[in-house]
Amino acid sequence: MVDRVITTQEAQELMEKLKDIHGPLMFHQSGGCCDGSSPMCYPLGEFRTGDSDILLGKLPGDIPFYISKDQYEYWKHTQLIIDVVNGRGGMFSLEGPEGKRFLTRSRVFSDEEREELDSSVI
């Protein structure tokens, strides 16, 4: 089955570095406000998820990736690709001091992939 969220190799390498520093990690796709619409990286359990959040998938290293239900409705037709670029990270996200920031890219699912995903439950 196609994954709803994946990473680039460079993002995986940064996640491993952050995991070595901070321990187990988690992500939440920000829907705006202070840090725009960025994937935010936290120590596992530091960001409180609730009934308005869904687990979109697990990134390499068993890192959970959450998104709000409202944000998911906008992006459910796309695969999220977590990448990293040079620059200042979100002020609440762990990568900030590393001179890098996580970035969400996306691609539209094919008709076949959408059918497969529609048959699965989030």
Rank of each mutant, 00 (worst) to 15 (best):
S119R: 07
E13G: 11
G32A: 11
T8Y: 05
H28A: 03
L103D: 11
K19Q: 06
I21P: 08
E10F: 00
K19W: 00
R107Y: 09
I6K: 01
T7A: 06
D111E: 14
M26F: 02
G23T: 03
I82T: 01
R105Y: 12
S120C: 14
D62E: 10
M15R: 08
D51V: 12
R48E: 12
E73I: 02
M15C: 02
M26R: 00
D35N: 13
E95M: 05
S37F: 08
G57E: 10
D53K: 00
K19T: 07
N86R: 03
G99D: 10
M40P: 06
E112N: 07
G45V: 05
I81V: 06
I122M: 03
H28T: 00
R4K: 09
D20N: 14
N86S: 13
K58S: 12
G36R: 03
Y74I: 12
K58R: 04
L117K: 03
L18S: 09
S52Y: 07
F27T: 02
L55H: 01
S120Q: 14
M26V: 02
D118M: 11
L25R: 01
L25T: 01
K100F: 12
K19I: 03
G32D: 13
P43M: 14
R105P: 09
K17N: 15
L25W: 00
P64L: 09
G90A: 07
D83S: 15
V85Q: 05
G36C: 08
N86T: 12
D111T: 01
Q9I: 14
S119N: 14
P97R: 01
Q9Y: 10
S93M: 12
L103I: 05
H28P: 00
S110H: 04
L14E: 11
Q12A: 08
V121G: 07
L44K: 07
M40G: 09
S37R: 03
G61F: 06
C41S: 06
E16K: 09
Y42R: 01
K17E: 15
F65S: 02
G31W: 03
V121L: 14
E16S: 07
F47E: 05
V121I: 13
D118V: 07
D62H: 06
G50V: 04
C41F: 01
Y66F: 14
P24F: 01
G31D: 02
R105S: 14
D53E: 12
L44Q: 11
K76V: 06
G36I: 06
P60Q: 09
D35A: 11
G96M: 11
E13M: 05
W75C: 07
V84W: 05
L44S: 08
S37A: 10
I6T: 09
P64F: 05
D3A: 12
L94T: 03
V108K: 11
F102I: 08
Y74S: 10
F109G: 09
G45Q: 08
M26D: 04
T8D: 12
V121N: 11
S52I: 04
L14N: 06
G89I: 00
I67Q: 04
P64V: 09
E16D: 14
C34I: 08
L103S: 01
